[in-house]
Design a protein around this nucleic acid. Sequence first.
RNA 1: GGUCGGUUGGCCGAGCGGCUAGGCAGCGGUCUGCAAAACCGCGUACGGCGGUUCGAAUCCGCCACCGACCUCCA
Length: 490
Amino acid sequence: MENQLQIYNTLSRQKEVFEPIHPGKVGLYVCGPTVYGKAHLGHARPAVTFDLLFRYLKHLGYKVRYVRNITDVGHLANDADEGEDKIAKKARLDELEPMEVVQIYTNDYHKNMEKLNVLPPSIEPRATGHIIEQIDAVEKILKSGYAYESKGSVYFDVEKYAKNFPYGELSGRKIEDLQANTRDLDGQDEKHSPLDFAIWKKASPEHIMRWPSRWSDGFPGWHMECTAMSCKYLGETFDIHGGGMDLTFPHHEAEIAQSKAAFGHDSVHYWMHNNMITLNGQKMGKSLGNAISLDDFFDGNHTLLEKAYSPMTIRFFMLTAQYRSTLDFSNEALQAAEKGMDRLLKAVETLEKLDAKTESTVNIAELKDKCYAAMNDDLNSPIAIAHLFDGVKMINSIADGKASISVDDLEALKSLYSTFVFEIFGLKKPEAESSANTAAYEKAIDLLLQLRMEAKANKDWATADKIRDELANLGFVVKDTKDGFSWELK
RNA sequence: GGUCGGUUGGCCGAGCGGCUAGGCAGCGGUCUGCAAAACCGCGUACGGCGGUUCGAAUCCGCCACCGACCUCCA
């Protein structure tokens, strides 16, 4: 079992061996952002989580079609079905065209994802680009009898559906509980039941984002886009659907209901949900007003941030927790992640310079097995990283001459680290600038340190220390090595 | 109120019945002209109270506290 990928399926509430519908191929759909604000730390969690899954599946040899949508219509700001569209609201506040808002924040999201080294998905469909498909899905549901038209809107008939299908199976809710706990909302008169949700909504006169349909000029309900677009690009049945835990209910539950009503069967084999980022133990969210944007993290411009944190620090930080656990943000935790990652990446550099001996005193095969076993156990990246740190000790010991490694093992170790650190975990070394300018200045620093070496050879400690101290004042860290020196900026 | 989840050493985080991760911080040592880095060693934590068991952080019960979802949220 250990050598097969197992993933936790929210639907069954247990880990299951992953078996794709079509051998060698995986269809993956993940709910992307609603683009009405800057990308924040919370957005990075599912992005990094499913990027890890995407990368790992590809590493295992699967051909993966990864679809991650952009929600640019249908997401209402207030009480269900009655509020203003989030995009339209932002557009009104900023005096922009709705599509301008969408473009600005889609660009922002893309820019930040690229910084985080999150691979672009295979297809990134927009809800507004799939109105026809959504209308078509609404028609299918109407035809199957699980929806009804009311005053130009179309609602999903939850109670009727619940008679034939287990509504609430994903989120663990019972229809009776939902009925008992429904809030009193205004404007529910169009619906047969408060549990019903809009799959097509008639636009009020002032509503800008609208499309014609046989029911009304209107717009699709939020849950429709994922049903329509996943079906279009991955088929009526596909392998994995992912998203944040906060989407489990009602969004994903509604998707399941829509698919079953439209197609007569389940669409998704494995439901995966990442947990939340917390701030002082509370969920970080845009609507809670405690979200810190990724831009802020990258340049340290926020009262809660002691310093700037690089995108790779954020990425590594997320990988040090298993995706189904909450992860609590703090400066201390982030700085620990930063230093830890630095140690890991330094060891990778050291690894490149290692000399092989005839015999190994280290067990590389075992290390490798452990890393894969951890990843196969529902993407347990923190365990895999722990093993990688065991390897860091090996590497440094070998560099210190306290352990030795054979030629074959050295190749295996290099391959292991390049696979896990870069290919699967998607970490990057800090960009080495290679312009003519930097080459010249690097040589100048080297020259200074050569002079320091000479001073040291002459036991002229005053001069040696002066060079080191002055460079330190400029932000250079100088270290003596066995046969020379090394330095880095900042 | 309902449903689900959590409570692990200074901090972050694994663990899912015995072999007591890992990182960061800290302490001691080795190396070094000094420093840094690196290496070696150290710290025995699992909310409380009971129970099951030869044995529990891990299973069961009760209690306490925290959180998520139930309305938009990644």
